[in-house]
């Protein structure tokens, strides 16, 4: 269940999925950098970059509905930030600042979406590691991802258990308390688990370095 949520499309088998991660990272960062540097007058170029990202997404078999949903969640937030500029002038100007923000961030978002939906996180991290990302940070990320799955499943189980004991519509205050309990209990369980993992690591000779057996 957590798997579906966390890696919806990154485990695919398309052409884009099979490209080496390093090449994809460099390409995406180039597109993002270019897209965020283009001034407003060059909007056709921005449009081309956005089109390129969309072509990439469709080659990678990412359904249009998913891209649309993500954009529908993304654009309002960017629009709110962008509109703050004209708002500060009482909607009497600064429209081009707003326009350039929306244009640039949409291009960058589509490019990033292509990268993350064609690359599983482990592969992405391996690529970033080779591009110079600190090893400590990568091993912490890998550990976090591993327990993200465990915590998501635990959270789902706790939610089910809570629903099973809730019979009628609750007042806001009650459901606030319930939610607090849910997250608080998850927090306590997570910290207890961290202690047990620490013990398990110590039992197997842990000396503070996360080493992986690379082939």
């Amino acid at each position: 269940m957590a798997v579906e949520f966390l890696e919806r499309y990154s485990q695919g088998q398309s052409l884009c999925h099979r490209w080496p991660a390093r090449a994809k990272i460099v390409l995406t960062l180039l597109v993002i950098a270019t897209g965020t540097l283009l001034p407003l007058e060059y909007w056709p170029a921005s449009g081309c970059l956005a089109g390129l990202a969309l072509v990439g997404l469709s080659v990678a078999d990412i359904p249009l509905g998913y891209i649309g949903r993500r954009l529908a969640l993304f654009l309002p937030l960017v629009l709110m930030t962008a509109l703050a500029a004209p708002l500060s002038r009482g909607f009497m100007g600064a429209w081009d600042t707003a326009a350039v923000i929306v244009l640039r961030s949409t291009v960058a978002f589509l490019a990033a979406l292509w990268l993350v939906s064609t690359t599983p996180l482990e592969t992405l991290l391996a690529g970033l590691c080779r591009l110079g990302m600190p090893r400590v940070f990568v091993s912490l990320l890998i550990f976090t991802l591993r327990y993200l799955y465990v915590l998501f499943d635990e959270l789902a189980r706790m939610k089910t258990a809570q629903r099973a004991r809730t019979f009628q519509r609750q007042s806001t205050w009650r459901s606030w308390l319930g939610t607090t309990q849910l997250v608080g209990m998850l927090l306590i369980r997570a910290l207890n688990r961290a202690e047990r993992i620490h013990a398990a690591m110590m039992s197997r000779g842990w000396r503070g370095r996360m080493e992986l057996l690379d082939d």
């Binding site: 890998i142 550990f143 991802l145 591993r146 688990r193 993992i197 013990a199």
Partner: peptide
């Protein structure tokens, strides 16, 4: 077992 399987 989830306490002991902490590697990718």
């Amino acid at each position: 077992p989830d306490d002991q399987l902490f590697c990718p």
